[in-house]
Simulated scan of single mutants.
Amino acid sequence: MSNEPLVVVEGLRKVYRSGPNEVVALREVSFELFPGELVAVRGRSGSGKTTLLNQIGGLDRPDAGRVVVAGHEVTAMSEESLLGLRRDVLGFVFQSFGLIPVLSAAENVGVPMRLVRMPVAEREERIGMLLALVGLEQHVNQRPYELSGGQRQRVAIARSLANRPRLLIADEPTGQLDSQTGRQIMELLRALVRSEGVTALVATHDPSLITLADRVLEISDGAVREAALA
C-alpha cells in the first residue's frame, strides 16, 4: 500500500437550509484514503453518509473545506473538469443499480467505454473480462429485468470499473439485497480492490459487512471518526 494518500478530505462542512432551519450534514470532516484499501463508512440513515460520498465524488459542493482525489482538488474544479474526473478517475456504484433497462449486461458495461471512444476490439475484450471478473460471463446478453438483484449489482460494479478508475465510491451497494447476496457483493468488492488495485469507499449500515473492510469510518450527526474493526 502506498504511503501517499489517494484521497485527502480536509475540514469538510455542509449545511442544508430550509427557511430558518439548518441541518449540519458534515461537521469539519477530515481523513485520508490510501491506494488499495477498502474503507467502510458506517452510520445510521440520515447521518450524512451519502452527503460525504457526494462531496468526494464531486456530485455536490461543500460550504467549507476541500477534497483532493488523485492530485485533483475536486472542490475547486469546474463542472466540465468534474465530468472528466468522474469519467476517468472515479467509479460509482449505487443502491438502485442504475442500469439502462433496454441494454444487455454487456451493453450496460460498455456505456462508459463508448463515452471515451475506446476502440471496438479493446472495448469488447474489456467487457468480457469485467463480466467474467464479476462472475457473469454466462449472462452477457441478458437485460436487467432478466437478472436477479445480486446479478444486476454485479453488472453495475463491472460498469463502474469500465474505465479503470482509481477510486470506487459505493453508496449502500447492498441496500436492496438479502443478507447473503449482500455479503457476496461486499466480498466481490474486496476482491476487486485487491485484483484491480482500486481504492473503495463503501457506505453501509449493515454490521455484518463492516468486518470485510480494511478500515471503518463512523459518521454520526455529521462528524466522522475512525472506528475499531469488529
Results as ranks from 00 to 15, higher is better:
Ala40Lys: 00
Val41Gln: 02
Arg42Asp: 03
Arg42Met: 13
Gly43Leu: 07
Arg44Gln: 12
Ser45Met: 12
Gly46Trp: 09
Gly46Lys: 04
Ser47Thr: 10
Lys49Ile: 06
Thr50Ile: 07
Thr50Pro: 01
Thr50Ala: 05
Leu52Thr: 04
Leu53Val: 08
Leu53Met: 13
Asn54Pro: 00
Asn54Met: 12
Gln55Val: 01
Gln55Thr: 05
Gly58Tyr: 03
Leu59Tyr: 09
Asp60Pro: 03
Asp60Phe: 01
Arg61Gln: 09
Pro62Ile: 00
Pro62Gln: 05
Pro62Tyr: 03
Asp63Pro: 03
Gly65Phe: 04
Arg66Tyr: 05
Val69Asp: 01
Val69Ala: 09
Ala70Ile: 09
His72Ile: 11
Glu73Ala: 13
Glu73Asp: 14
Thr75Val: 08
Met77Pro: 02
Met77Lys: 01
Ser78Trp: 06
Ser78Glu: 09
Ser78Phe: 07
Glu79His: 11
Glu80Leu: 11
Ser81Lys: 14
Leu82Asn: 01
Leu82Gln: 02
Gly84Asp: 09
Gly84Lys: 11
Arg87Glu: 11
Leu90His: 08
Gly91Met: 05
Val93Arg: 00
Val93Ser: 04
Phe94Met: 05
Phe94Gln: 07
Phe97Ile: 02
Gly98Lys: 03
Gly98Ser: 10
Gly98Tyr: 08
Gly98Asn: 15
Leu99Ser: 05
Leu103His: 10
Leu103Asp: 05
Leu103Phe: 14
Ser104Tyr: 09
Ser104Trp: 06
Asn108Glu: 08
Val109Lys: 00
Gly110Gln: 07
Pro112Trp: 09
Pro112Tyr: 08
Pro112Ala: 10
Met113Gly: 10
Arg114Leu: 15
Arg114Tyr: 12
Arg114Gly: 08
Leu115Trp: 09
Met118Leu: 14
Pro119Thr: 13
Pro119Cys: 13
Glu122Gly: 07
Arg123Gly: 07
Arg123Leu: 15
Glu124Asn: 15
Ile127Cys: 07
Met129Thr: 10
Met129Pro: 00
Leu131Tyr: 08
Leu131Gly: 01
Ala132Arg: 15
Leu133Tyr: 00
Leu133His: 04
Gly135Gln: 08
Gly135Leu: 05
Gly135Tyr: 02
Leu136Pro: 04
Glu137Met: 08
His139Arg: 15
His139Asp: 12
Val140Asp: 00
Val140His: 09
Arg143Lys: 15
Arg143Cys: 10
Tyr145Gln: 14
Tyr145Lys: 12
Glu146Asp: 11
Leu147His: 09
Leu147Asn: 12
Ser148Asp: 05
Ser148Gly: 08
Gly149His: 06
Gly150Tyr: 04
Gly150Thr: 02
Gly150Phe: 00
Gln153Ala: 01
Ala156Trp: 00
Ile157Trp: 02
Arg159Ile: 07
Arg159Gly: 01
